[in-house]
């Protein structure tokens, strides 16, 4: 029997990493919760014919996609304290700063995915809806958006998989998520096992993400 006994040190490691995973998941879900709707708004603004709307949004998307997320994390965390004028200085909690950075960064990527999806819907769909008397809002939410969601699932799944791995970046702000928990343990025990185990955790999470998207694609496969 002793050959099958799990060593206590491994149980301890998994428990430790599991706490880190919970924080990673928290970042993951909060980011999706806010960035998916914000991305849609951003896409609509990006497609606006008003220059004063679409120019600033294009600049925002350029900055978010054109600079490292790691720098954005640092910038958002330090900005309110070091760069705000005297009297307006404040400290953002590390976790809040991380969520803000992730949300604004991912919203920019999602916006471009939404835009691609929306622009791929034939104009005839809008015209048929208009002639039937649907309002613009009804047309968007009943006719256009459902078709957009089906079309953008593959690129969105790419982003979501990247997000799982990107959560490791918040360790730069000292938030103890999966990666930081593993690194600390590796340093303490002079062993690479915790890092390797963390890798397996990320892989497992993305296996679930992949399965979820496969299911969603199947569910929306009832039409072409």
């Amino acid at each position: 029997m002793s050959a099958f006994q799990v060593p206590p040190s491994l149980i301890k490691l998994v428990t430790l990493l599991f706490n880190g995973v919970l924080t990673s998941l928290e970042i993951f879900f909060l980011t999706l919760l806010f960035s998916l709707p914000l991305g849609l708004l951003t896409a609509l603004g990006r497609m606006s014919s008003q220059k004063w709307v679409n120019y600033p949004i294009r600049l925002y998307i350029l900055i978010m996609r054109g600079t490292p997320l790691l720098l954005q994390l640092i910038f958002i965390y330090y900005f309110p304290f070091y760069l705000m004028p005297e009297g307006l200085k404040f400290r953002l909690p590390r976790f809040t700063a991380a969520i803000i950075a992730f949300v604004v960064n991912y919203a920019a990527y999602f916006a471009e995915i939404y835009r691609g999806g929306i622009e791929s819907i034939p104009i005839g769909q809008y015209e048929a809806a208009a002639v039937l008397g649907f309002t613009r809002t009804q047309t968007f939410f009943k006719i256009i958006l459902p078709q957009v969601i089906k079309r953008i699932l593959p690129p969105v799944s790419n982003e979501v998989i990247t997000l799982v791995k990107d959560t490791a970046l918040v360790n730069i702000l000292g938030v103890t998520e999966l990666f930081r928990a593993a690194k600390n343990e590796a340093n303490r025990t002079f062993s690479t096992t915790p890092l390797f185990t963390a890798g397996l955790f990320y892989l497992f999470l993305n296996w679930i993400v992949t399965k979820v998207f496969e299911k969603a694609e199947k569910k929306l496969g009832y039409y072409r």
Partner: peptide
């Protein structure tokens, strides 16, 4: 329309009933 412009994500039934329900 020349190209029908049916709503691909709705069944035939729902293509016909959607506007009467939500517009009429």
């Amino acid at each position: 329309f020349q190209n029908f412009n049916l709503f691909p994500h709705f069944s035939v039934m729902r293509n016909i009933t959607e506007a009467p329900i939500h517009v009429r």
